[in-house]
Write a protein that binds this DNA or RNA. Sequence first.
DNA 1: CGGCATACAAACCAATCGGTCGGTTTCTTT
DNA 2: AAAGAAACCGACCGATTGGTTTGTATGCCG
Lengths: 218, 218
Amino acid sequence: MAVTSPSRTQEERSRDMRALLIEATLDCLQAQGFHGASLSVILDRAGVSRGAWAHHFSSKHDLLAAAAEAMMAEAAVAARAVTATLDGEEDRFAALIEQVWQRFYRGRHRDVLFELVVACRTDGELAQRLRPVFIELIESFRGAWGSATPDASGGGDLLTLTLFVLRGMAMQEMLAESADGQAALRGLWTGISRDFLQSRHDRPLRQGAGGPLLGAIT
Amino acid sequence: MAVTSPSRTQEERSRDMRALLIEATLDCLQAQGFHGASLSVILDRAGVSRGAWAHHFSSKHDLLAAAAEAMMAEAAVAARAVTATLDGEEDRFAALIEQVWQRFYRGRHRDVLFELVVACRTDGELAQRLRPVFIELIESFRGAWGSATPDASGGGDLLTLTLFVLRGMAMQEMLAESADGQAALRGLWTGISRDFLQSRHDRPLRQGAGGPLLGAIT
DNA sequence: CGGCATACAAACCAATCGGTCGGTTTCTTT
DNA sequence: AAAGAAACCGACCGATTGGTTTGTATGCCG
């Protein structure tokens, strides 16, 4: 018999353990919130010891930040994939909004995202570390939006407004889930924004909306 | 000389102490966030002892809930006062949105509100206790909205959408304050929504927006 | 095979958490 | 004035926090 072949490489073990801890962290953030996601709870859920965590992360803060980065990075990938799914849709505009809603403003991603945003407000260090991934996700949205609304002009602001609406809608659902999941209001918004895009060519808007606009974050 | 007259009545002292603790709690929620607002920090800011807190509140949870209720109740009063300030405004619609933004989606109220909403997600007890005050504030908004958009039909959904936009906008500002405080995008939204209200009489919306709509919360 | 670094476990630690308790001051009541 | 209740203080408590350390098993490499 040959030398005992390692069942799993060290690199594999390391990678898997990190992923396991990160996943448990995200689950805890959803289930218990930021203040309830203590190290003990996270490790208990992951089913590993304190030493495992200490070996792979320098602090609890580090674990949280890594988990946040992982979730956001994965989200950015998914956001870029959305564009492809729009092919064949008769109403690319409505389909895009619906997809973004379903994937990014519901479930664990939404729950954890809100925890993170609120945490970032009082934790400059975390905010600074997460800024790149926030921006990356938004840029991915912008790309998908551009492919769904071919006419170049003015779409940027409308995307920002759309994300505002989805966020406010998500906040609403967090407090009290509605029966239809706010589908009716999303339909209303889709109609309003499309009408606006349509009529925008002909007549100017009553109230000026000039001025520099900064990109939305998440 | 008469018997030593008390400088302050017991009822006064009690009321003031409660208010002092509540105020300190709200300040801490803004400055340190939910997870950072420990009892020690709050009491230190208020400048009172642990015993004072214990005498007036049954638990930390109780203090937090009381502080939240106080802030929301005060906000509801302010929301009802907004209607009056609209008199004399040439553009009541835009003025209302601006007032709501300035008073309820900026500063301490916004910061604490987001902390509370996120906390409520994982704290059913708190959520249940705060639900009435959330609803009360929204109802106050609805009253003001009705007075700014006299034509009865359909305004309700548009108010909800407007609150969604303001929330999403507030979330944006929490992460990264913009130079103009999102004034341009508010202007854009004001124009879009007014156009929609205007054109709503003539032609129907492309995509149906029927179905029962639940009232927005906060 | 053997020396070694990595991966992980579990006991341990000081600090802080929310909460309690005996004691003192301040108002109220008779 | 005296007795009693309410307001308030500050020391104290057990539980839990994030973090460390010591020990062991396992994959890596000469």
